[in-house]
Nucleic acid binder design. Structure first.
Length: 274
DNA sequence: CCGGTCACCTGAGTGC
DNA sequence: TGCACTCAGGTGACCG
């Protein structure tokens, strides 16, 4: 599900609701959703206060007191849901519950994930760095400069679309925003990334920045079930290529073509995108 | 080493 | 209606 704009939206909305709140209690309803054993997971989190909620690539990062951390990858269908603390019945597809307290107030944050691909990880002091090094994420797709893009893209083997999806090259692109950015930059997803000129990379960088920022303004794309804590996003109304195979290209009218690159469905205009 | 394929899951949509 | 089949925003393991 979430790519950079959806993860950014979730982090912002979670921050607004949970900053300064304490994790009073943790329940895990489906053990495999936690990367470690659930006992050490709950032990690491219980009693900590939430200092910051941010995004690292597509990961959601809760910074907790005493150098403790909660890192969540939402994969295809992960999302957050506020509801009542589960007595016996859990809300549908919710696999972990965090009872949060702030002075006399109380609320419960649920991790919800229909397809159960997502993973939650807790870290104690010094452990987060090791994990992030292991992930080896490239520069953030939104924060990186055109020079960063150029250095990363031109020094990588493979088709442009596959390279954009590789989180160790640039962190944050997924299938939607890769297709949308390539369409806007008039670059073929099938091009070998290393053949891009500096001008082409600068243009791709500019288009990607514009699209990712606009998507964040729209609170992400809701294609099927994606919801941020404050509800669905609306950037799907601005998609020009993703999900539009068979429809006319908005630039030239030629039919948009669907193919498969890096195992992912890819839509592009064979006339505009060179 | 590399690209391609599958596995992990569930639900929605489609066609018979 | 119902069933079989395909596809989905991601990534990591495995294979030739």
């Amino acid at each position: 599900m979430p790519e950079l704009p959806e993860a950014e939206t979730m982090a912002r909305e979670l921050a607004a609701k949970t900053l300064g709140w304490k994790i009073a209690e943790v329940l895990v309803n489906f053990a495999p959703i936690v990367a470690s054993d659930w006992q050490s997971f709950t032990d690491l989190l219980t009693g900590r206060e939430i200092e910051l909620v941010k995004r690292i690539g597509k990961w959601i990062h809760f910074v907790l007191t005493q150098d403790h951390h909660l890192l969540i990858h939402l994969k295809m269908t992960g999302q957050f849901h506020f509801d009542a603390w589960p007595s016996s019945e859990w809300p549908s597809h919710c696999h972990a519950a965090f009872r949060l307290t702030h002075q006399s107030q109380e609320q419960t944050l649920f991790y919800k994930d229909t397809r159960k691909f997502g993973r939650l990880r807790a870290f104690g002091p010094g452990q987060l760095e090791i994990f992030l090094n292991h992930l080896n994420l490239g520069p953030d797709a939104l924060l990186a400069s055109a020079k960063d893009y150029h250095e990363r893209l031109v020094n990588t083997k493979g088709k442009l679309k596959a390279v954009l999806l590789d989180q160790t090259v640039l962190a944050g692109f997924g299938n939607i925003y890769a297709d949308e950015s390539l369409f806007a930059a008039k670059l073929s997803p099938l091009r070998e990334a290393k053949t891009l000129t500096l001008e082409e990379v600068k243009n791709l960088h500019g288009q990607a920045q514009r699209i990712l920022k606009k998507a964040i303004d729209c609170r992400g794309s809701t294609v099927s079930s994606y919801q941020a804590p404050e509800g669905a996003g609306s950037y799907q109304d601005h998609h020009k290529a993703y999900g539009k195979a068979g429809q006319p290209c908005p630039h030239c009218g030629q039919v948009l073509v669907k193919t498969v690159v890096a195992g992912r469905s890819t839509v592009f205009c064979p006339k505009c995108q060179k």
